[in-house]
Write a protein that binds this DNA or RNA. Sequence first.
DNA 1: TTTTTAATTGATAACAATTATTATTTAATA
DNA 2: TATTAAATAATAATTGTTATCAATTAAAAA
Lengths: 131, 131
Amino acid sequence: MKKNLFKFKMTPQRMAILNYLKDNKDHPAVEDIYKSIITQFPTISLATVYKNLEMLKNLGMLKELSIGQDKKHFDPNVSPHHHLICKECKKIVDIDVKFDLNIPEHSKKGFEIIGSHIEFYGICPECKKKS
Amino acid sequence: MKKNLFKFKMTPQRMAILNYLKDNKDHPAVEDIYKSIITQFPTISLATVYKNLEMLKNLGMLKELSIGQDKKHFDPNVSPHHHLICKECKKIVDIDVKFDLNIPEHSKKGFEIIGSHIEFYGICPECKKKS
DNA sequence: TTTTTAATTGATAACAATTATTATTTAATA
DNA sequence: TATTAAATAATAATTGTTATCAATTAAAAA
């Protein structure tokens, strides 16, 4: 039989979190995830959700978005992409466009660049309609 | 004499905050600002710093950076520019390079784009030396 | 299958950053 | 100088997140 090389157990709670996040394009905050999972696991603790998200992030299965300084948001899409953020409703939407972000060497200020992320700010169609 | 069209007073505390931020390129967090001002105003309250920063932001004299989800950082440079962020020490450095970030209309998902901001992640020269 | 054990859970306390509240003080105008 | 609305300082409250720990449980070993 296959040995579990990772030192973690597949608990029903963890499974539910993974399942909720799978193909999720909403960039949910921790509370969003919690509120959904608690319908299936009425006793789940918010701390459990936090711990699982931290773990899945460390395993590279999730990316944490630092958009807005308020809450942590998680993205199961770990491949490089950028985001559109609505200034009104704070909705986060993927933008699947590649940009050339090469920095001329003399502008790098000695940094070794590892990655990049663009946040586009604007008004989403729903909020535009309202105003 | 000139009337103050804005409904705010120029207090010594506010002046000190403005002065600290003027030409500041360090993207300080609230506590950094507080720690500096308190040397001149030993009785200043952290809440006063918060309120002033919020006000100056609303007046368009500062920009709030949402880099990292931990603390609020403020930037007196309100003209569009991007940032290099050190993954090790979390230092934030301006990058004065213009990028072409035009999004093809069909990729805008109905958003009206207002602005954009690029975060480049990497290792700063100081941290590179250490490791 | 049963036992063992280390990981995980849930409950809650602790914590850090920020915001709200309020009595007192003060800058700006009359 | 007197008036008054805005600002301050002190502190309580709130929010989001992390730490702690006893009880539980999934997975490896027996």
